[in-house]
C-alpha cells in the first residue's frame, strides 16, 4: 500500500536525477505534445528510442518501468483491440462476421498503443527520478507568474507538500483504527454490501476527527514557527537550471524537428 501511494521515487545518482525538476516537467509536457506528431513507423521508432535513451540515462532498472506500465497494460490492450476493428484502410487480413482486420487498422492500432505507452514511460520516469517535494517545488516555480493574477500558487504548493508528508502518518492511523474496531467485533471484509458500508462509519469518523485534530495542531505549530504566508519568505532549496537542463530541452526540440521532417 505504501509504495503505491507515495509514488515510486527511487533515489539514484544519474543524469536524469540531477536535472532541475522544472526542465523535467517542461520536458514531459513537450514530449506529450511531440508524441502526436508521430504517424509512421520511422517516427514511432524515434519516439521509442528516445524513451530508451531516457531510461538508460536514469540508470533505472527496466523492472521499475514495467511496474509503472503494468497498471495500464489492460487499457493499452483494450484500445489496441478496439482500434484494430474500428480503423480501416489497406488490405483486409481476415474477416470474422462484421469485423474486418486490415493492414491499415493494424498499423494504426500499433501506433496508438505505442503513443500511450511512451507517454506512460516518460511520466513514470519523471516520478521515479524526482521526489514528490521536488515536483512540488518545480511546479510552484513554473506557476510563479500566476501569482501576479492573485492565484494562490504558494499556498497550493505548501498544501501539496504537507499532504504528501502526512500520507504515511494517516495510513498508519487508518490501520490502527481498523484493528481497534476489528477487536471490538466490527468486520470490514465479510458480510453484505450494506453491512460493509455500515462498518465504514466507525472507521471514517475517528479518521476525520483525528485528521482535524492534526490539522489544528499543525496550524498552531506553523504559526508558532513564524509562518505567515508567502510574504518575505525565503526558500532553502534553490532550483538551479544547468547545461543539463538546456540539453534536455534542446534534445526535445531536435526530436520535434526530426519528427516533423520524417512524418508523412
Amino acid at each position: 500500500m505504501f509504495n503505491l501511494v507515495i509514488g515510486q521515487y527511487v533515489p539514484l545518482d544519474s543524469y536524469v536525477h540531477h536535472l532541475d525538476p522544472r526542465s523535467k516537467l517542461i520536458g514531459v509536457f513537450l514530449f506529450v505534445v511531440i508524441v502526436f506528431l508521430a504517424n509512421n513507423w520511422l517516427t514511432n521508432i524515434l519516439m521509442i528510442l528516445f524513451c530508451f535513451a531516457g531510461i538508460l540515462l536514469s540508470k533505472m532498472q527496466l523492472s521499475y518501468i514495467y511496474r509503472g506500465l503494468r497498471s495500464i497494460l489492460l487499457i493499452v490492450l483494450l484500445t489496441f483491440v478496439l482500434n484494430l476493428f474500428l480503423a480501416s484502410g489497406g488490405t483486409t487480413l481476415f474477416s470474422w462476421g462484421w469485423f474486418h482486420v486490415t493492414t491499415g487498422g493494424l498499423t494504426q492500432s500499433v501506433f496508438i498503443a505505442v503513443r500511450i505507452m511512451v507517454i506512460i514511460v516518460v511520466t513514470t520516469l519523471l516520478t521515479l527520478t524526482t521526489s514528490p517535494i521536488e515536483i512540488t517545488d518545480g511546479m510552484e516555480s513554473l506557476l510563479n507568474p500566476l501569482k501576479k493574477i492573485k492565484m494562490p500558487v504558494h499556498e497550493f504548493a505548501l498544501m501539496m507538500s504537507i499532504s504528501l508528508r502526512f500520507i504515511p502518518t494517516l495510513l498508519e492511523e487508518t490501520e490502527k483504527i481498523i484493528k481497534a474496531q476489528a477487536a471490538r467485533g466490527s468486520d470490514f471484509t465479510t458480510g453484505s454490501l450494506r453491512g460493509r458500508i455500515k462498518a465504514i462509519v466507525p472507521l471514517l469518523v475517528p479518521l476525520f476527527v483525528g485528521a482535524f485534530k492534526r490539522a489544528e495542531d499543525l496550524a498552531m505549530a506553523m504559526e508558532a514557527r513564524g509562518y505567515h504566508g508567502d510574504d518575505g519568505r525565503t526558500k532553502l532549496h534553490q532550483l538551479k537550471w544547468s547545461w543539463r537542463d538546456s540539453l534536455l530541452i534542446s534534445a526535445l526540440v531536435l526530436l520535434a524537428l526530426l519528427l516533423i521532417f520524417a512524418r508523412n
Binding site: 490502527k176 483504527i177 484493528k179 474496531q181 471490538r184 462509519v201 466507525p202 471514517l204 475517528p206 476527527v209
Partner: peptide, 9 residues
C-alpha cells in the same frame, strides 16, 4: 489499544 480514545465514533 494505545490511545484508545482515538477509536470513539
Amino acid at each position: 489499544f494505545q490511545y484508545p480514545e482515538h477509536q470513539l465514533f
